[in-house]
């Protein structure tokens, strides 16, 4: 074990214990470990941002363009530079307004990317996937019987529709001022709650499995560290 590995093991063991101390209750050691973790993580991310974003994508092209680039390259590289400078203004409350244009640019680009991704990557494929749940050819390729395909496909279809109905909050106001959804939608939404409950239960089980795996990994790391000295 090298010195670096030893230091790493010690730090790992120490911080793991500090965090586990929270099982007893909130204590300064736990807080110190958390604050150090946040500081180190932020510093590390800042270093990453500098070395893997700003430097290779802005500074290096800028230097390159200034040295050998054409006028167009210089102009094109000055735009993100200007945007970077303006977005730095956001750190100052007085100058934050100057970054609105840059933020508008980011929001606009992000919205466009999200729209295209949602439509082409999720909306249409998932609708098609729901339809294909009854695809007998695909089922036969998986050696799935017809009854099983229809049975499972029906549940998938029902779960999809009912869950979507659950998120339908449109309601017509009645004369007495109360708002209530249509009766059919209300029933579908109730069934949708069942499917959502099942889905969230599945997620809960997955979260617990992931957490349990992490706990096991930490416990094993502790024993591994201790095992090095035993």
């Amino acid at each position: 074990m090298t010195t670096l590995d030893l230091i790493t093991a010690i730090l790992s063991f120490l911080f793991t214990l500090l965090i586990f101390s929270y099982l007893i209750g909130d204590n300064p050691l736990f807080r110190i470990a958390v604050y150090i973790f946040v500081g180190v993580s932020s510093g590390y991310i800042a270093a990453i941002a500098w070395w893997q974003v700003i430097w290779p994508r802005l500074i290096q092209p800028l230097i390159s363009a200034m040295l050998t680039g054409s006028l167009l390259e210089k102009g094109l590289i000055f735009v993100p530079l200007l945007g970077a400078v303006l977005i730095l203004m956001k750190a100052s409350p007085r100058l934050a307004g100057m970054s609105r244009g840059v933020m508008a640019f980011l929001v606009g680009v992000g919205a466009a990317v999200t729209i295209a991704g949602a439509v082409m990557g999720t909306l249409i494929p998932q609708v098609m996937g729901t339809i294909n749940s009854f695809d007998l050819a695909s089922a036969s390729a998986r050696n799935i019987s017809l009854i099983e395909v229809i049975f499972n496909g029906a549940f998938v279809l029902a779960g999809t529709i009912f869950t979507l109905t659950y998120f339908h909050f449109g309601a017509r106001a009645k004369v007495d001022g109360s708002t209530r959804r249509n009766g059919l939608i209300e029933i579908s939404a109730w069934a949708g709650r069942i499917f959502i409950g099942i889905t969230l239960g599945t997620v809960f089980a997955g979260v617990y499995a992931a957490a349990l795996t992490a706990l096991i990994e930490r416990i094993m790391s502790l024993f591994n560290f201790l095992g090095n000295f035993l």
Binding site: T130, N152, G159, Y166, I198, T199, T202
Partner: peptide, 29 residues
């Protein structure tokens, strides 16, 4: 449960999220 029941609910949620994302993005645009 995971491949049928949870799949239907998850698909509904995904489509709902996609619709919400689409709506929000269009409002921005």
């Amino acid at each position: 449960i995971t491949q049928v029941l949870a799949l239907g609910g998850a698909r509904g949620i995904l489509i709902g999220v996609a619709l919400g994302t689409l709506t929000t993005g269009l409002r921005v645009l």
